[in-house]
Design a protein around this nucleic acid. Structure first.
Length: 492
RNA sequence: GGCGGCGUAGCCAAGAGGCCUAAGGCGACGGUUUGCAAAACCGUUAUUCGCCGGUUCGAAUCCGGCCGCCGCCUCCA
């Protein structure tokens, strides 16, 4: 078998073989930090997180680089556009770097909640101005770029392969162009490497061409080169960045280095909300913080971050994903079922009798593991991989019901949950605190008093009273479950 | 206008020529269990894969047409 990945460059699934045996360098286009992360970010970064996790599961030594864009990303093409960070900074009356810093923290916070592993390196564009100027110089020296009044543009006509990723040719692009072309450009398809800054532009740096700031595409080339080398194994990003962003990255990098830039290009698909493109004007723009707290008019409740993650993994990364309250609700229910089973298994391990591993169970576990790996090997088919976790849930619950499994057998089940559901998919946690927050601990005490009252009523066969107490708790969002070893409670 | 994708049960979603009389999840319904519930387990829920034709011994899977939806081409993950 072996891992196969769909390479956007060749439009085929290919056997994955890193440049250097056992080591993988991955670069993923990170966020432009001018606002809170939304559901689209979640799909993208969860998808690539699973890729990184699976590569590590397979034993590769992975270096994962994901940039933070804090300068140079314009709201518009050509010279008319304003820097996104700069524009947001004006609105929030903050220094651009303060704005970028706060949304960078916000982003990491959301990604942590989604159980996305932190990249090994999160380089900031603004921290690599020197390197970016260096690349522009190289391109000028090699004749791939030209300077016009303090701005430097890449001469697309000099780079033959331009369009090889997106499958476009420059003639077609001109026909469909809807944007007014900058007068500075020799050719409308040329793109900016460095831009001259007007005096009132806050984010600007000295360069051989005067005060200015880097073009957006430049940072990814420079930072992937710096940390992963001239040729990287995998470059990931959103489908919408295939053109022009990634096409321009290829052009500048390969023109400068005379070496292939990326061996495997991976693009994840977009999200919609209630079947429509997510956009602020459509009122269906949902940030992760809103999804986690339920504070959005399209949502009926709050959703566990890992339930959001599970919903994302329920479909393929190259398929579009429609977020809706119903879909999130389904994700939440399924996630809850997995979680409850894992918790129950772990609880039972301690109580179970010691003994040998059940061979029949061991066989079933091995089969599930094989099926899981085969699915993941096939261009990360997380949908099937997730179905394997649900098969494991059913197996686990049957063992719990039989109540005859040895602790060794239960540990083997838990280990597989940890490896597949935890290490790779990131939806099973190592620890589930009994009560997660200090407030819940207080609630726990109160609920236990009520449970005590109800148990007393039940012992005296006063079921009317018992049911009344249970009903009252339910109206507070608390569900009681009478288990063989006592009554438990959980949030609805 | 150019380029690309999608349409599978009430909903989400795998499958990409025979293993499909189509995974898995959610929901619903019936059963076991329970004082009753909840949870769990068992079972039922698409003879059919947008529609119409074609290729083939064989098609959800390939080809053509039609209908519907979406994305990119301008910033977006």
């Amino acid at each position: 078998m072996g891992l196969k990945l769909y390479n956007s460059l060749t439009r085929r699934k290919e056997d994955f073989e890193p440049l250097e045996e056992g080591k993988v360098g991955i670069y993923v286009c990170g966020p432009t930090v001018y606002g809170h992360a939304h559901l689209g970010h979640a799909k993208s970064y969860v998808s690539f997180d699973v890729l990184v996790r699976y590569l590590r599961y397979l034993g590769y030594n992975v270096t994962y680089v994901q940039n933070i864009t804090d300068v140079g990303h314009l709201t518009d093409d050509a010279d008319q556009g304003e820097d996104k960070i700069g524009e947001a900074a004006k609105k929030e009356k903050k220094h651009p770097m303060a704005l970028a810093e706060s949304y960078t923290c916000s982003y990491f916070d959301d990604m942590d909640k989604l159980n996305c592993l932190r990249p090994d390196i999160s380089p900031r564009a603004s921290g690599h101005i020197v390197e970016q100027i260096g690349l522009v110089k190289t391109l000028l020296e090699k004749g791939y770029a030209y300077e016009v009044q303090g701005s430097v543009y890449f001469d697309v006509s000099k780079f033959e392969d331009y369009g090889k990723l997106s499958g476009r040719n420059t003639d077609e692009m001109l026909a469909g162009a809807r944007v007014e072309v900058s007068a500075d450009k020799e050719n409308p398809v040329d793109f900016a490497l460095w831009k001259r800054a007007e005096p009132n532009h806050i984010m600007q740096w000295p360069s051989p061409w005067g005060m200015g700031f880097p073009g957006w595409h430049l940072e990814c080339s420079v930072m992937s080169m710096k940390y992963l080398g001239k040729t990287i194994d995998i470059h990931g990003g959103g489908l919408e960045n295939k053109f022009p962003h990634h096409e321009c990255e290829i052009a500048q990098s390969e023109a400068a280095n005379d070496a292939q830039f990326v061996r495997y290009w991976l693009h994840n698909n977009m999200v919609t909300v209630d079947s429509q493109k997510m956009g602020k004007s459509l009122n269906n723009f949902i940030t992760l913080k809103q999804a986690f707290s339920g504070s959005h008019e399209r949502l009926t409740r709050s959703y566990d971050p890992l339930a959001v993650r599970q919903l994302i993994l329920n479909s393929h990364y190259r398929s579009p994903l429609d977020f809706s309250d119903a879909a999130l609700f389904a994700g939440q229910s399924g996630y809850g079922r997995i979680t409850e089973t894992v918790k129950a298994i772990r609880k039972r391990v301690d109580a179970a009798a010691e003994g040998e591993l059940d061979n029949e169970v061991a066989d079933q576990l091995a089969q599930l593991k094989d099926k899981f790996e085969a699915a993941m090997d096939d261009d990360l088919n997380t949908s099937v991989a997730l179905s394997v976790v649900f098969e494991l849930v059913r197996l686990a619950n049957k063992l719990l019901e039989d109540n005859s499994a040895t602790s060794t057998t239960l540990e083997a089940v838990d280990d597989l949950f940890g490896a597949l559901g935890g290490d790779v998919l990131g939806i099973v946690r190592d620890e589930y605190p009994q009560v997660s927050a200090a407030d819940d601990a207080r609630v726990d005490n109160v609920v236990k008093i009520v449970i005590g009252e109800r148990s007393a009523a039940r012992e005296q066969k006063d079921f009317a009273r018992a049911d009344e107490l249970r009903k009252q708790l339910e109206s507070c969002g608390i569900i009681l479950e009478d288990k063989p070893d006592g009554t438990q409670w959980r949030w609805k």
